[in-house]
Simulated assay, not measured.
Amino acid sequence: MANWARKFLYRIFCVLAMLVSVYLIVDFLVSGTFDYRIFTMFLLLTVVEIWGIIDWRRNYLLMQQKESELKLYKHYIRPLEELVKEIRAKQHEFDNHVNAILNMHLTVNDYEELVARQSAYITEVIRDDDSRRYLPLLRISDKVLAGFLYSKIVRAPSFIKTEVEVKSLEIISGISEHHLIEIVGTLVDNAYEACTKEMNRVVMELDSENDRLVFLIKNQLQGMKLKNIHRFFEKGYSTKTDSDRHGLGLYNAKMLIGRYHGEIVVSMEKMNGADFICMKVVV
């Protein structure tokens, strides 16, 4: 018998048990007599009803979670599809660039000049093609996370330079998809909001170890004292001027990570002489 059929029959049984329980209560109230056998049957039927309610509630919550994850998939898979379309559309341009490089020897006089011109041409093509920087996101197994990160990157202020490094293509995590997006989204928003035109670098790293996602994000931040780093996750604490409207995102993210027995670590790091705040999440 199919699983859905068993659940359907079980729920019919729970309804019948409830009806019989109501009948026994009414019969007891009307007759005023107590029969331990009827009372025992009533208790058994009540246990069945309670178990049925618990089972229904669990299935209902699971169904809601699946619907939420489906909405996330439909919403964030679109940016990834747009990236794929953009790359395919540039295939024709790529063919033109290859032909230009192959025929460049017809317009130069010596080997050294050919090498120099080809190198300059290729460097310019790569620099102008921003989509190439985010190709690693296309290869990871979690397409919802990939689409979400890409949508965040392309919608960030134009002065922000985002670098993405994928260390593992198989992204595995025991956390639900919508909670994962909530946590990662908080960290990304926090990093982008801290950026200025002078301190505009953000680095993201994606990895997986021991069936857990490892997400690391770094952003430039100047003038931060080491003793204040650990206050980032305090409720209401914020480094922003309008702190009354902030200070809950990282706190809520930490609470959510704790529910899944994960961990979040914040530290300071120097890269190319600049100070970076690093936040590492393992869930």
Rank of each mutant, 00 (worst) to 15 (best):
L9W: 08
R11F: 13
R11K: 11
R11M: 13
I12H: 13
I12E: 15
F13V: 10
V15W: 11
A17Q: 01
Y23H: 10
L24Y: 15
D27L: 05
F28Q: 11
V30P: 00
D35W: 05
Y36I: 09
R37E: 12
F39H: 05
T40N: 11
F42E: 05
F42V: 00
L43P: 03
L44Q: 10
T46N: 14
V47A: 15
V47M: 12
W56P: 02
R57G: 11
Y60D: 15
L62I: 00
M63N: 15
L70N: 07
I77S: 15
R78Y: 10
R78E: 13
R78I: 10
L80C: 00
E81Y: 11
E82Q: 15
V84S: 07
K90F: 00
H92P: 01
D95W: 05
D95F: 09
V98L: 14
I101D: 05
I101C: 04
L102F: 04
L102W: 02
H105P: 01
T107E: 02
V108I: 06
D110A: 04
E112S: 12
E113W: 01
A116T: 13
S119G: 00
A120D: 14
Y121F: 12
Y121R: 00
I126A: 09
D129P: 01
R132H: 09
P136H: 06
R139G: 08
R139D: 14
D142L: 04
F148P: 02
F148L: 06
Y150W: 10
Y150D: 06
V154A: 01
V154M: 09
A156L: 08
I160C: 01
I160Q: 00
K161C: 04
K161S: 09
T162R: 02
V166F: 06
V166R: 06
S168G: 09
G174P: 08
L180A: 03
I183L: 06
G185T: 05
L187G: 07
V188C: 06
A191T: 03
Y192A: 00
C195A: 12
M199S: 08
M199F: 10
E205Q: 12
D207I: 05
S208C: 13
S208G: 07
E209I: 15
R231D: 07
K235F: 04
Y237G: 00
H246P: 02
Y251D: 01
M255K: 12
M255A: 10
L256E: 15
I257G: 11
G258L: 05
E263L: 08
M268F: 02
M268P: 01
E269A: 06
K270Y: 08
A274R: 01
A274N: 03
D275F: 04
D275M: 11
F276H: 03
F276T: 07
C278D: 11
V281K: 05
